[in-house]
Design a protein around this nucleic acid. Structure first.
Lengths: 333, 333
DNA sequence: CCGAAACTCTAGAACGTTCTAGCGACTCCG
DNA sequence: CGGAGTCGCTAGAACGTTCTAGAGTTTCGG
């Protein structure tokens, strides 16, 4: 605290305005029980002194914090889009957000631990680092909403994108363009990878393209996509669906370096619609998760749980949407 | 809160262990004044009941929160690198971070406002949205550290990268490679743009290349870089330094589309070393800000101010470092 | 073996809010 | 004009910690 700068409290305002502390509290909260003139005068004094309510003291007393804890990972660009949506959704619901970030040197476990001390009323976890059992043990204390991952526990709510449907959309798009030999770069053990892979396989079968099903092992990073691409080069398909945008970027790079034109020789479809894919330089056709819908539903679930309303289904699945850009086109013939 | 799940308090632990609340507090804080056996027993009980200290109550009483508020912007990828560094630096200094994000729909003003309620002891602001006078009025209440921007006020500490030096490094690198006709894409009114532009001009003059100085109006976005590139096409230089990586990416795209090879025909140097520039697909030579040093110094300044130590210089400038990648090479001849 | 010093522990007052009672002073209706 | 209801306000107890004083008990030097 600054040398001279003591924090202004309700008591200071009350003294200056010549009223009781309780009354100032009433005015500041906009609660009923104060006359119009006094209300105005108290407001003026509070503003003049630069009064700021102390949220800690407030919630210490009231029990409620109206605070939602959010754990995100600074390494995942997609998380930031989600944050934008969450802030808006939380505000609509009358809640505030406290953030706790996971970084390369700070795991989700630590991030969640910090949040638990902060007295938030529910926790929303973006990442997939924590085990289902860990989430469940937290859920014993307060509502937990997991986003973009599955959880094999009944006590944890889940809001995620329909990964299988997204893959269907990608394959349908490519088939409509005339592709038959469509490969898929897998996301390994990353959450959602299995669903996206199976969605791809189902969609291929649905189009009677069983014989062209081809899954290349990959991962979540750009280099994973690049390595997978190397394996494709010997016998390139006419189109590829990638587990995510980053992998698709790695793929694109290898294709270019080897003289294959996109989408002339090979069409590429990513997943996530990260800001990356929007760059003119990359201009990637991709499957977009509906960020706003996911954020809104996650907050909705959290609030329902907090306020004890009889809850609906534990698991909310949001439909994604294909965004067609420059990396997909009809196959060469 | 969950139906049955009352929060465990010191009183619960004290009752269960058969000691006073004060003693449990002592044990939990690791403060002196408790016997070894009791200490162990209290610890065991606390752990068994799943006790978590309530940070709000704690700081309400103790006055100190050991909390640093951080305002960042979800739209700026560079801010996340900085967060990683800040978490580490804060932990070393024995402080915690509370984050407040600015998004497309939530200005820095709102973000700072939230933070002020949280009783943090200093505020670190990444962005440049707030006016100097606004920062100063906050600084009247608690220490404010501005990162990556200048502030024309004495009461606000500033930690930033030496933008002029970065430009010098970029130009020196290009000159060493043999370039003479080097253009600069400007960042308009964005913080740091003026310094980078002037650094470019100085460096050019230092090399006796006055006549080749050429500044193209631009901005902070990819499209700004692209528009600037269009203007260059009529009479392309052999090298370009861009205000930031995003602009450089826009530039790269336009160059490619117009059949100019990088670095064969034109070399490009960006600024910031965002994750973008590390993509194989882009592989941009760029000026890297020293994230860890900046984070460490920012926390250091904040702590010095909080703890009232006679402070050093108000403004800390960190030297950047050139990262040579694939977009720079000798000019064609 | 006695007084001082050192330990271990406890009671109770803060911290800045919110909330429950309740107290006067009006107003209103019969 | 008297009782009930409303309005505007206040006193004081919470909330879960930390901190100051001090009360017992043990240790120890002389």
């Amino acid at each position: 605290m600054q040398p001279g700068g003591k924090r202004i409290t309700l008591a200071d305002v009350a003294a200056e305005a010549g009223v009781s502390v309780a009354l100032v509290s009433i005015v500041m909260r906009g609660a009923p029980g104060a006359g119009a003139v006094t209300r105005e005068r108290v407001r003026e004094v509070a503003h003049r002194l630069g009064y700021r309510p102390d949220s800690r003291a407030r919630l210490l007393r009231s029990g409620r914090s109206r605070l939602l804890g959010v754990v995100f990972d600074v390494r995942h660009p997609f998380h930031f889009d989600l944050l934008t949506g969450l802030y808006a959704a939380a505000e609509r619901a009358g809640y505030q957000l406290t953030l706790s970030a996971a970084t390369a040197r700070r795991g989700e476990r630590t991030a969640v631990g910090d949040l638990l001390q902060d007295r938030c009323e529910a926790i929303i976890v973006f990442g997939g680092e924590l085990r289902s059992s860990e989430l469940a043990s937290i859920a014993a204390r307060l509502p937990v909403i997991a986003m973009m991952r599955g959880v094999r526990r009944k006590d944890v709510d889940v809001v995620h994108n329909d990964d299988a449907l997204g893959s269907h959309q990608a394959v349908d798009h490519l088939v409509t363009l005339g592709h038959r030999r469509i490969a898929h770069i897998d996301g390994a053990a990353v959450h959602g990878a299995a669903e996206r892979r199976m969605g791809y396989q189902e969609a291929m079968r649905r189009h009677g393209l069983d014989e062209y099903i081809r899954v290349i092992p990959g991962g979540a990073g750009e280099d994973d996509g690049a390595r997978a691409a190397e394996k494709l080069l010997a016998d390139p398909p006419t189109a590829v669906t990638a587990f995510n945008d980053l992998g698709a970027t790695g793929l694109l790079d290898v294709l270019h370096r080897n003289g294959l034109r996109v989408p002339g020789d090979v069409s590429v479809v990513g997943y996530d619609d990260t800001s990356l894919s929007r760059l003119a330089h990359i201009d990637l056709t991709t499957v977009a998760q509906d960020v706003d819908a996911m954020a809104t539903r996650a907050v909705e679930r959290a609030v329902e749980r907090i306020e004890g309303t009889p809850t609906g289904p534990r698991s909310v699945v949001i439909a994604p949407r294909l965004v067609v850009r420059g990396t997909s086109g009809p196959p060469a013939r």
